[in-house]
């Protein structure tokens, strides 16, 4: 088995910058099921990020690198590969941000940690305030998990109104490109020979 890790990528020529992908990502990763905006008691925390400049509009997300620098850099082994997905075990994450430094795409973010819709606190770490020591909010590393276990595959791909996102399977990608190249050669040969 030598399958390369699949990943999601956006087409900047199709993307309109609506952020439906971000919302859909947050919805499927919410730990309490949500259908309407009013049901949400937590912020929208996506795992892909819209880049919008004068030159380019598209969301960026994890490439599920073969030699994942985030996993290599993680001092507590919280990042592993599961079924072709580079996966963060948020319970194990200590929030050191080394993975953020290591990721060449900015696909990793430190986000507030929620469980059952409630903000999770650090176990012991407190901050001194006027009213005495207060437990600090927990933050954990968060990145695309290609919607592991989600029916219908990645939610960003399924919900994009412009079909600007797709799952790339690298082995198929090469074969498709090879075929396209071969057909192009055939075309040009035809033109030369007539």
């Amino acid at each position: 088995m030598c399958a390369l890790n699949a990943f999601v990528v956006a087409d900047p020529n199709k993307c309109i910058g609506c952020k439906v992908c971000e919302v859909a990502c947050a919805v499927v990763h919410s730990d309490v099921p949500v259908k309407t905006v009013g049901q949400m008691t937590t912020p929208i925390i996506p795992r892909l990020y819209l880049v919008k400049t004068a030159e380019v509009t598209m969301p960026v997300q994890c490439r599920h690198c073969e030699d994942a620098p985030c996993a290599n850099a993680c001092p507590v082994g919280a990042i592993t590969q599961r079924d072709g997905i580079i996966y963060v075990d948020q319970e194990a994450c200590v929030g050191c941000k080394t993975c953020m430094l290591a990721c060449p795409f900015g696909a990793m973010e430190m986000v507030p940690y929620y469980r059952n819709g409630e903000r999770v606190k650090q176990l012991r770490l407190t901050e001194e305030t006027g009213e005495g020591p207060v437990l600090q909010d927990a933050f954990v590393a968060s990145k695309c998990d290609r919607c592991i276990g989600v029916e219908g595959g990645p939610a960003c791909v399924a919900n994009c109104p412009k079909e600007a996102l797709r799952v790339v399977r690298p082995d198929e990608l090469r074969r498709t490109r090879n075929l396209e190249a071969a057909l192009a050669v055939l075309e040009s040969v035809k033109n030369v020979i007539g």
Binding site: V20, V23, A24, V27, V34, K35, T36, V37, G38, M40, A155, N159, P161
Partner: peptide, 13 residues
């Protein structure tokens, strides 16, 4: 009305 988070749920609603 309540705003569906996903386009498909807007139609289902």
């Amino acid at each position: 009305q309540p705003k569906a988070l996903l386009p498909k749920d807007r139609i289902c609603a």
